[in-house]
Design a protein around this nucleic acid. Structure first.
Length: 329
DNA sequence: AGGTTGTTCCGCCACC
DNA sequence: AAGGTGGCGGAACAAC
């Protein structure tokens, strides 16, 4: 039985609590005895969320006894967070609790409380896109990843804003109980097990600051929508209206990886989803994901994923729920 | 399984 | 002068 403690405070973002809670509750239903869910707050008792929903009967943090499997601190608006600022006190308490906790994490701006507890030093960290700069400023030793939906770094797990807490919870369930169960929960909640792309797709500022500007952004969007198209360096360059040389420079600068690398990982992602979510034959999967042939698909799997397409499908495929991609009759 | 052929990517440099 | 751009060639890598 893994004890999951969700930490709330007045003004907490309701979804930061209810999202992960729903995920863990479903996991508990699927695998009875897997999790015990505890709602906690600094003082205990009722906590009023930003949305006005009241969480009755939270447990006082200081009264928690015994080992904790996972401690997750929720986030909220700045005002609420400052208030929870008895935050220094909360951070202290979290620091103390973390000593007997296997895994400590945060959702959204909850990362500030972990930071205050000194738990983020040297760790890769995610938080709401609107709070990345401030978090990095306040905790210079943390390695804030502005684009990440969530980060798992050792025992510290953090997620971007609000609904990203659900993604994090799914990742935790996946780590604990396996891919099949996490995948089933995601389907039940009508979610992706792994959403594609980073949080920058939700943030106009992040997109704009993705230094290359909107020309490349539009191209990247187009690439994601057309993994099967001709995405060779030369073609992409002319699509972007630049020379190959300049395109290479600008793309690497903006995206942090070369065009070919980006295209390849996109295609692998696409192929994985098609294998897991559909019953399409391998040659269709290869075609739709942009690998020219089954052979190319298999080689890519072997070298990047250390497995084969067939093996992935047999382990993670979902025979009872075979979907057809939109372009299939 | 391994050699041939193609592609990608980067340093260098000249040119706006 | 200075910073972005683009062509060239070859090393490294991937495709077939």
């Amino acid at each position: 039985m893994r004890r999951i403690v969700l930490v709330a405070f007045d003004g907490v973002e309701a979804l930061d609590i209810t999202g992960p809670a729903s995920v863990f509750a479903r996991a508990q239903r699927t695998e009875p005895g897997a999790y015990e869910l505890v709602l906690a707050s600094a003082r205990g008792g009722a906590v009023k969320t930003e949305a006005g929903l009241v969480l009755a009967d939270t447990v006082a943090l200081h009264s928690l006894e015994g080992p904790i499997d996972t401690l997750l601190v929720a986030g909220g608006g700045e005002a609420a967070l400052q208030q929870a600022h008895a935050v220094d006190q909360v951070s202290d308490t979290i620091r103390r609790l973390s000593a007997r906790t296997r895994r400590v994490g945060s959702i959204c701006t909850g990362a500030f409380i972990l930071g205050g507890a000194g738990l983020l030093d040297g760790r890769r960290v995610a938080t709401h896109w609107g709070a990345c700069d401030r978090l990095q400023e306040m905790f210079p030793k943390a390695r804030v990843e502005p684009d990440a939906i969530y980060c798992l770094d050792g025992r510290i797990c953090t997620s971007a804003g609000v609904t990203a807490g659900i993604d994090l919870a799914l990742a935790i369930v996946e780590a604990d109980l396996g891919r099949a169960i996490a995948s089933a929960i995601a389907r039940d909640m009508v979610l992706y097990l792994r959403r594609s792309g980073g949080q920058s797709q939700y943030s106009a500022p992040l997109q704009a600051q993705s230094r290359a500007g909107p020309d490349l952004q539009a191209l990247v969007t187009w690439i994601s929508a057309n993994p099967g198209a001709d995405l060779s360096a030369g073609t992409l360059a002319s699509r972007a209206g630049m020379s190959e040389r300049t395109f290479l420079r600008r793309f690497s600068q903006a995206m942090g990886c070369t065009p070919a690398r980006y295209v390849r990982s996109l295609r692998l992602e696409r192929a994985k989803s098609l294998l897991e979510e559909t019953a399409l034959p391998l040659d269709r999967v290869a075609q739709l994901s942009g690998f020219g042939s089954v052979d190319a698909l298999q080689r890519a799997f072997r070298s990047d994923l250390k497995t084969t397409p067939g093996d992935l499908r047999s382990r993670f495929g979902t025979p009872s729920n075979m979907l057809r991609p939109p372009d299939e009759p």
